[in-house]
Design a protein around this nucleic acid. Sequence first.
DNA 1: GATGAATGAGAATTCATTCAT
DNA 2: CATGAATGAATTCTCATTCAT
Lengths: 200, 200, 200, 200
Amino acid sequence: MPIIVDKARKRREILEAAMRVFSREGYHRAKMEAVAEEAGIGKGTVYEYFKSKTDLFLALHDHMLAELKAFYMKELEGIRQPAAMLERFIAVAFQTFRLWEPFFLVFFDYWAEGGRGEQQTLLQTRLREAYAVARNDVAAIIAAGVKDGSLRCDNPLLAAASILATLDGLVLQWLCDRDAFDLDAMRESLTQTILRSLQP
Amino acid sequence: MPIIVDKARKRREILEAAMRVFSREGYHRAKMEAVAEEAGIGKGTVYEYFKSKTDLFLALHDHMLAELKAFYMKELEGIRQPAAMLERFIAVAFQTFRLWEPFFLVFFDYWAEGGRGEQQTLLQTRLREAYAVARNDVAAIIAAGVKDGSLRCDNPLLAAASILATLDGLVLQWLCDRDAFDLDAMRESLTQTILRSLQP
Amino acid sequence: MPIIVDKARKRREILEAAMRVFSREGYHRAKMEAVAEEAGIGKGTVYEYFKSKTDLFLALHDHMLAELKAFYMKELEGIRQPAAMLERFIAVAFQTFRLWEPFFLVFFDYWAEGGRGEQQTLLQTRLREAYAVARNDVAAIIAAGVKDGSLRCDNPLLAAASILATLDGLVLQWLCDRDAFDLDAMRESLTQTILRSLQP
Amino acid sequence: MPIIVDKARKRREILEAAMRVFSREGYHRAKMEAVAEEAGIGKGTVYEYFKSKTDLFLALHDHMLAELKAFYMKELEGIRQPAAMLERFIAVAFQTFRLWEPFFLVFFDYWAEGGRGEQQTLLQTRLREAYAVARNDVAAIIAAGVKDGSLRCDNPLLAAASILATLDGLVLQWLCDRDAFDLDAMRESLTQTILRSLQP
DNA sequence: GATGAATGAGAATTCATTCAT
DNA sequence: CATGAATGAATTCTCATTCAT
């Protein structure tokens, strides 16, 4: 009788090992062997679950985004007021800066790989889609506020893009230098600025 | 009669060739040979000017920042009003998105390399310094505005960090998807938001 | 109540699966997993019957030769006249070209492995023995003809070697290019040439 | 000034090293590193001349056939009589058995690789072409004999194919077992048989 | 007996760097 | 000075084999 293995579980373990290794060393410097070791398995086993390093990289992107989204969903659950949602959204973002540091470090590599080239790589498509989804989600909150009169905004999608950009840019800057600014002060200041700019 | 070679000039040519190659392929995928070819010289010659690929990468960072700074200086020249300077600063930033695309694509790699690790790499130090300088420059403009009463801001450094973050995040997003948002609309909207948030 | 398995039968099934896979892909490119799949069993099971890939390869050689010999025996059964036996032998050989194509394709690999090296590999010994047996068999037919005066030949063993060589060389050539020559025309021509050269 | 290297010469040296290694170990077992070592160069250098193992293998085929052909040309030079040419041709073939042993051992691999598959591999095409050329060359000699009345043959191309097959089959057999038959006796016998079968 | 998940030795290939000319 | 031929450390990926169930 064949050994019964929870393939989905092991797959996730590999993904999480990959995240740690990639975040530590960077995608290009990271060796498959290191990923295997981090996952506590043999080199060849990784290839039973992912057919190449690229494939693993891609799968990790999906995995990470799914996890991130789930985190946001959970944290935003139950909040109905658009302004409150935005405030919470920003707060959660700042939380992730600290809690999901490795996550964002890996993201550097997606940006570096995905920004490049006109060839419509799978990664590029995914990255583009992920951004579009995020923009739409945030824009939807703003639009809801506009509708119920609690917010004012001519172009919710543009505002959403801008908010996301600020958050991205802040992790970037903060990860390059933890002393660049105080996270809490920045969160308060940013929340104020954004909410004020959307005030009716 | 030795051929007199303008070493500084050739050095710059190599740097610019490297920028094109790195922006096209990414630092890790880029081959030294490709850089040499792009510069129209022999592979070995690159090593006469830069002692290693890392060294070239690092030197390119300095070169690029110097060029960028020079561009900003020129474009901001003559403007005295803090608010006007900020407006112009943002406008110039958006200009660079289009004009300096390869530049930013290479920047992805600096972020990817520099964000990582506690090891105080030379690159990391430089990146940190560059950010600090940029923050100080922008903060200085704001502080000047606060001083002459034309602007209001509790923490100019924090505001500067935030502005820079937004701009960084926007290139990132825009380079991943040129259709993410309209650059001109974004510039206008962003300028408004920022200036309004600094209104006394 | 243990499942009674016809081990010999399954063994043969694996051998035949191996023949198909080896003939398709070549011994070296063929994967044990592919053999297992072709046999409709699990990868590990192959190792219950053959202790290694080499072992399987070797066993296949024996199996194939036994099958081939049986085929010849059946086809030559009842023929007594040496000349007629030779004619039939050649005809059967040409039949096998078409009918046993995979068989010969695998043989390429035995030649490639067996021709090489002074190390007295098991395979090499087997190959040598197989050739010796075949030569003796054919030589025996010729010798019988010489004895009954229906054929003339100074050195039956040499003639046998030559006949076998021609047949081997023809499969080789024909398998490399099905359009190299017409099989039927070749068979007729060859039969004539051989029989005439052995005419008293 | 760049180092001046006789690239063609080194290429040939690598090819010859490859022939030795491939003939010794077989194409599949042979390691690129062994080829490099045999050629007295570094592993990477082989790749400066051949872009892959397959490429080297293919190039070796061409190289070997060219060398073989040159050898035949030289040895047949000056002979005009068709019968004499055939006799000489066979004699040269038997010479090569002894002199070019490694050559033929490598050929096993071409047969093993080239016989297989319907995919029109480059190697397969080359092999087919090589056979066709050889058949035509031999057939031309026979046809010349038919024309001047010194030989008789209904189908020179068929006869040529048969002669080549016999020679191929003989190397095969002989390389598998040097004691299978005496080369000289076989040569004489074969020459007789062939010439007699072509007698008017 | 049968299975297939796990493994790691092994091989092809790449590419930064050196250095003879 | 400039060059590009040579190099080998490093890395990805393959696949025969093992063995727990």
